[in-house]
Amino acid sequence: MLRLENISFEVENEKEILKDVNLTIEKGKFIAITGPNGGGKSTLARIISGVLKPTKGKITFYGEDITDLSITERAQRGISFGFQQPVRFKGITVHDLVNIAKGEDLSVMEASHYLSEVGLCAKDYINRELNDGLSGGEIKRIEIATIIARNTKLSIFDEPEAGIDLWSFNHLIDIFMKMHQSKENSIVIISHQERILDVADEIIAMVDGAIVKRGAKESVLPELLHCEDPKNCLNCHDILEA
């Protein structure tokens, strides 16, 4: 479905952020990308969604070369991207944003459905502006609601757990599992959270701009953490949670 071939990304006078990354994501898969900060995970997500252009390499999506396509064109072909730090807008309401995401004017009841999916009481939020009056957790859940509303072939989430409280986090896992019931659509989540890694089909570990390991959790985490038993290792647990 999605294929990245020899993708590199470097910024002038700085180190290479992505180094010759090759990656294939099949239809219906739930992939978690993890690894230490600065490893290139967010850059990879931004390159897939078109926010950044790779300096080398090729990206194909359902057989089409999308390397030179714009953000809009990729979105229209079925790629969604949930920001790590959702953007705020003065004057644009939650209802407006859900309408934009869905690509049609939804009734209050229809739009409210997507807010309920992310655990927000719709009547309290539907007419709120997406401004500084919303907390980090609230705006993050709205961000996720817009991705659910789009219901695209590929949904990428950059650290969806960041800024979300524990209660909401439990709900978040349910949301991803529900999305994963579709065998047509794929999910890619960048995360450090062990419980997200637990529910993914596969884990990709990125270190220093390269994919160092891909596979089931049991095989990836020991290599990433240089530990034979990360499941029962308190140190590993702390690293993951951090």
Partner: peptide
């Protein structure tokens, strides 16, 4: 734009909302 709007459409939405 990640929600599918063109650059022009995105600009118009932001201004209209503002």
């Amino acid at each position: 734009m990640t929600l599918g709007l063109t650059e022009g459409e995105a600009e118009a939405k932001i201004i209209d909302g503002f």
